[in-house]
């Protein structure tokens, strides 16, 4: 297990360096970065002065090493717009995105896995049709469209939830979510939920006919015991990877949902910084999102190893 984890960690670090490489050259590919950073009416001398100041006139390799050496300690430079270190801005927005991501993941787990289970255990039944329909809708309805409909119904018509913004309340020093998270989280959860329904269903269907399930029945175990001990545990293995990957995406922030609900998270910040051509910030967010995804994939791999002993010992 130790070797397995170490090898995964080394791989993850390799990927992150690759990401840094791409993030750095992304800026180069857009042409002369200085022309993006300075007013179109600046004189050639001013352009040259800024280029000198930012170090863009140095050889590309030197620039790259200096970028890398700063990036590994989380320094992506200052945001042009906010005049604050880019990483500080990200960390400031992170709690909001995390709240949204966790809420969305919980909703998709609570709805998706039971629906998938019921469907997989009773193929062809009414519940199966219902679950498959829900799963299909979840994966195909664009979440920004659903978000608008939800706002229309639940905020405008019914007035149950606020239509935008994030409200929190503080209890014993903890910042806790309020119902303001519900609509954005639900819109965001839909895709993951659809995926979970479909994967749970097919995993249960497949595992139900495995030989070891027949063995479990031949032992005289009650059906619910067979389900809990033998089917679910095995079905959870493919689900771990879906949950891990999806949570990674959720955590790196959704541009659509956060924009629609004016949710002060990373997605919103990214949309804003792209609009402002705030390159340092875009680079920082891009790297941060990749970092989150890679970290979660790493955790997923480890969880996978814990859940499936066959992987652990390879």
């Amino acid at each position: 297990m130790k070797r397995y984890i170490i090898s995964r960690v080394v791989q993850a670090i390799g990927i992150l360096f690759g990401v840094l490489f791409i993030v750095f050259f992304m800026l180069q590919l857009t042409g002369d970065p200085v022309s993006l950073l300075i007013s179109r009416h600046a004189s050639p001398e001013e352009v040259e002065a800024l280029r000198d100041e930012l170090g863009f006139n140095r050889p590309i390799l030197v620039q790259f090493t200096s970028f890398i050496s700063r990036a590994v300690v989380g320094d992506f430079g200052k945001s042009l717009r906010h005049h604050q270190p880019a990483m500080d801005l990200i960390l400031e927005r992170l709690p909001a995105t995390m709240e949204l991501a966790v809420a969305a993941l919980l909703i998709s787990l609570v709805l998706g896995i039971p629906l998938g289970l019921i469907a997989g255990s009773n193929p062809g039944s009414f519940w199966d049709v219902l679950s498959r329909g829900t799963g299909l809708l979840g994966q195909t309805i664009p979440n920004f469209w659903l978000a608008l409909i939800l706002i229309l119904v639940f905020s405008v018509n019914l007035g149950w939830f606020p239509s935008f913004g994030r409200e929190t309340w503080t209890f014993m020093g903890l910042t806790l979510p309020t119902r303001s998270v519900f609509l954005p989280a639900f819109s965001l959860s839909l895709f993951t939920m659809g995926q979970l329904i479909r994967f749970t269903r097919s995993a249960v269907l497949e595992i139900r006919s495995e030989d070891y399930v027949r063995t479990a029945y031949s032992k005289g175990l009650a059906a619910h015991r067979v389900y809990i001990r033998h089917i679910l545990r095995n079905a959870s293995i493919p689900l771990i990877s879906i949950v891990g990957v999806q949570f990674g995406y959720l955590l790196s922030g959704s541009i659509y949902i956060e924009t629609i609900f004016s949710w002060p998270g990373l997605g919103n910040l990214l949309a804003e910084s792209i609009g402002n051509r705030d390159f340092a910030l875009v680079q920082a967010i891009a790297f941060f999102s990749s970092f989150v995804v890679v970290t979660l994939n790493l955790l997923t791999d480890i969880a996978y190893g814990l859940a499936d002993p066959r992987i652990r010992y390879e």
């Binding site: 030989d211 027949r214 063995t215 031949s218 005289g220 009650a222 095995n234 002993p309 066959r310």
Partner: peptide, 28 residues
């Protein structure tokens, strides 16, 4: 009925299957 056959399965009549690798739960 279900409960009746369950008390027979494993309790009174044991089963040995052909391919033990697939007949045993891989994660238990």
């Amino acid at each position: 009925d279900r409960a009746g056959i369950r008390s027979i399965r494993g309790g009174k009549i044991g089963f040995i299957f052909q391919d033990a690798l697939s007949a045993l739960n891989p994660v238990m």
